[in-house]
Design a protein around this nucleic acid. Structure first.
Lengths: 195, 195
DNA sequence: CCCCCATCTTTCCCGTGGAAAGTTACTACA
DNA sequence: TGTAGTAACTTTCCACGGGAAAGATGGGGG
């Protein structure tokens, strides 16, 4: 039942979904509460009750983003490589969430809900990284940061349209050999063009 | 004597500097043309003549950013590692420029001046990368993207405050061992055996 | 000397975020 | 069943921001 009366039913979700949609299309800068309200068919001030202010809405977006990321990483399996690819895939398929998550200035980054969700995502990421060193000698303490950096950098550059042409349409597939380079370096002669 | 009359003298520079300052302090979202005008002591519409609109101003910021980045990379020397560290240093010491540069939605990313400046920065970066493969066997075609990704990712995560504590105060120094991991991987027994 | 034009100002309009107070309708409780 | 309480939403108001349009200013070239 949509709603024909005063109460919307699930305005919170409606706002959240609309925000993700608008941000995904036009970026965070183009998102206005009034536009979201228009899409939901409610007054522009309706969001105040659910989110407080605009930063509150974006806090919810970031929160949801961390949950979704944790989920995606967990489902990626045990291979570090797959976890890395999943990270890139997440960034591209959820660019709105991703964009918000890593712009702490946009939302209440210190809110307890966000901290908790971020913690869970961090554990999921670390879970993938934990399997990494076993494959290839003793681990460097810098390996986790290196792995996170390379996948995050790839994703960010891809989203910004900064990477050179010719990498294809599938960011995950394009990222795989790049990530491989971080860990299979001594194995070069053996690792061919694993397609 | 700065100016006491109608003409400011170098309003363009004044706006540009003020923009960089404000963005560096509070992010792109907090920057308003009116605030910059206030700081420069001119009317809020004065910027129109010099930049057209807000995106025009940010275009100039991005442009200047690419120039500065190219300069910084060129001065970093011939070692790939140093170039990578310089990239991270640039991002942190010029966070306003960096933030704008990689948010193409904020400015006219296709403007010829920007394309040219970006091209120059790309060449400076590639120049550093060109020296890399010689140190360690045949180069992977993915190496440049991997190198760019890891330094860009590290810088972005650092700026977002997402990296774990304990990396110290100097992002360049913190980045060095991380970048090293990308290329000195097979050399592990020889390189310092931390951990 | 005077006109031209680059530079800056004034004024106006619309969109946005948020505060405050009012309205509606669901729910608990007797 | 009826009513009080409260959650959910609306209305109204304000200050701010970007941008368009037209006016003011003053330096420089003819």
């Amino acid at each position: 039942m949509a709603r024909q009366s005063y109460h919307h039913g699930d305005l919170r979700k409606a706002f959240l979904d609309a925000a993700v949609e608008v941000i995904g299309e036009s970026g965070t800068g183009a998102m206005s509460l009034r536009e979201l309200a228009r899409r939901a068919g409610v007054s522009h001030a309706a969001s105040q009750h659910h989110f407080g202010d605009k930063a509150g809405l974006l806090t919810a977006v970031a929160c949801q983003g961390y949950e979704l990321l944790a989920e995606a990483l967990r489902q990626a399996g045990d291979e570090l490589l797959d976890v890395g690819v999943a990270y890139v895939d997440f960034a591209v398929t959820h660019r709105a969430h991703f964009e918000v998550m890593f712009q702490p200035g946009l939302y209440h980054a210190d809110a307890p809900e966000v901290r908790a969700a971020r913690e869970r995502a961090g554990l999921a990421l670390a879970g993938g990284l934990a399997r990494m060193p076993a494959r290839r000698g003793p681990a460097s303490p810098h390996a986790p940061v290196a792995a996170w950096s390379i996948v995050h950098g790839f994703a960010t550059l891809w989203l910004a349209g900064a990477l050179p042409e010719g990498l294809g349409d599938d960011p995950g597939a394009a990222a795989r050999p790049v990530i491989e380079l971080l860990f299979d370096h001594g194995d070069r002669n053996g690792s061919g063009g694993g397609g």
